[in-house]
């Protein structure tokens, strides 16, 4: 019992060290990477992490599937762009308003969707995202085919769009906030209730949990994060166009959480990185890209159904055991001498 407890703490230490090391590497990265396309590329990963984390609240935590979450990025993006272009409200505030508006839309969609199961829910979300795309294409003031230019993000007098190093750190900060909030959510009463609904909605009902209420809440939180990601994406690229929101792009977010691991804080982070890196690396493979993608997804499903996080956890546990053994060895050696 005691040794198990000890392993657990060592494992925790290993995890903390790994996270800290990753954070440090990411913080000093712009000192070495000065190519502005690369920095933009990394800033964009922040958008994907936020959106994938949002989807993970719905899929990983509450157990509902969606293949239409790109629609919430569209609502967030367009609402924020329209607000900032026409009213002159500071962009950062527009992004937050857009996220809340997107959460509101998510709630409206969730009320009927929370009654649906498995394949019916998936079809409903796909329909929702097709509807959204067609809506955008038919609203001429959005200039859907040629796109709209967007305002610059200004934070405390600093124009973030003037240098991609700024957006890089802004992405970093946003992702950190989202991850902290998400881990708090998973330990909170609401988070636990969502997981209970996911594992057994009947028993959850018997515990006094209002099942529909939490299904709707999960939709709203997930739409909030995706809406914010959409708004950030629009202001980051400086441009918004209907083609960024076609339904098949929804699959990308699903892929990210499958790669990374569902219902984990760092799953969407690793997933988004992997997804973007694969995209870049496979870019030269052109037609073969989709084929390679398919193979990689199949490998994941077959050998790492828990995603990269599950694999890393296993590695961390092994490392922790090794450290423990080493320490125990030294201790006995010391005892032998005395």
């Amino acid at each position: 019992m005691l040794t198990r407890f000890k392993t657990y703490t060592t494992q925790e230490k290993v995890t903390r060290c790994a996270i800290l090391a990753l954070a440090v590497v990411l913080l000093v990265l712009p000192l070495f990477v000065t190519n502005s396309y690369r920095l933009y590329f990394f800033s964009m990963i922040g958008v994907y992490i936020i959106a994938a984390s949002g989807l993970d609240v719905l899929v990983g935590m509450s157990g509902q599937m969606s293949f239409g979450h790109i629609a919430f990025l569209a609502y967030g993006g367009y609402i924020s762009v329209l607000l900032s272009n026409y009213t002159g409200i500071p962009v950062i505030i527009c992004m937050i308003i857009a996220a809340f508006a997107s959460a509101g839309i998510g709630m409206v969609i969730a009320v009927p969707c929370a009654k649906l199961r498995a394949q019916f829910l998936v079809l409903a979300t796909i329909a929702f995202s097709f509807f959204t795309y067609q809506l955008i294409c038919n609203l001429h003031f959005l200039n859907p085919y040629r796109g709209l230019y967007t305002e610059h993000m200004v934070l405390f007098g600093l124009d973030l769009n003037s240098d991609y190093r700024y957006t890089y750190y802004f992405s970093f900060a946003l992702v950190a906030i989202v991850l902290v909030l998400k881990s708090l959510l998973s330990k909170s009463k609401a988070g636990r209730a969502m997981m209970a609904v996911r594992d057994n909605s009947r028993s959850a009902d018997g515990m006094g949990i209002n099942v529909r209420h939490y299904k709707v809440l999960a939709f709203a939180i997930s739409a909030f994060l995706c809406g914010f990601a959409g708004a950030y994406m629009a202001h980051l690229t400086g441009f918004i166009v209907s083609d960024s929101f076609v339904q098949p792009l929804s699959f990308n977010f699903v892929l990210m959480i499958i790669f990374g691991g569902t219902n984990t804080v760092f799953g969407p982070v690793i997933g988004a990185f992997m997804y973007q890196l694969l995209n870049e690396l496979l870019a030269s493979a052109q037609a073969w890209r989709s084929v390679l993608y398919g193979v990689i997804v199949l490998i994941f499903i077959a050998f790492l159904p828990g995603g990269c996080v599950a694999g890393l956890r296993r590695a961390g546990r092994g490392l922790a055991k090794l450290i423990d053994k080493n320490q125990a060895g030294k201790e006995t050696a010391r005892n032998d001498k005395s």
Partner: peptide, 14 residues
Amino acid sequence: LAQVLEGRHIFPKL
């Protein structure tokens, strides 16, 4: 009023 369902229905992953 609490009920224990037929077939237990515990949360397997908790």
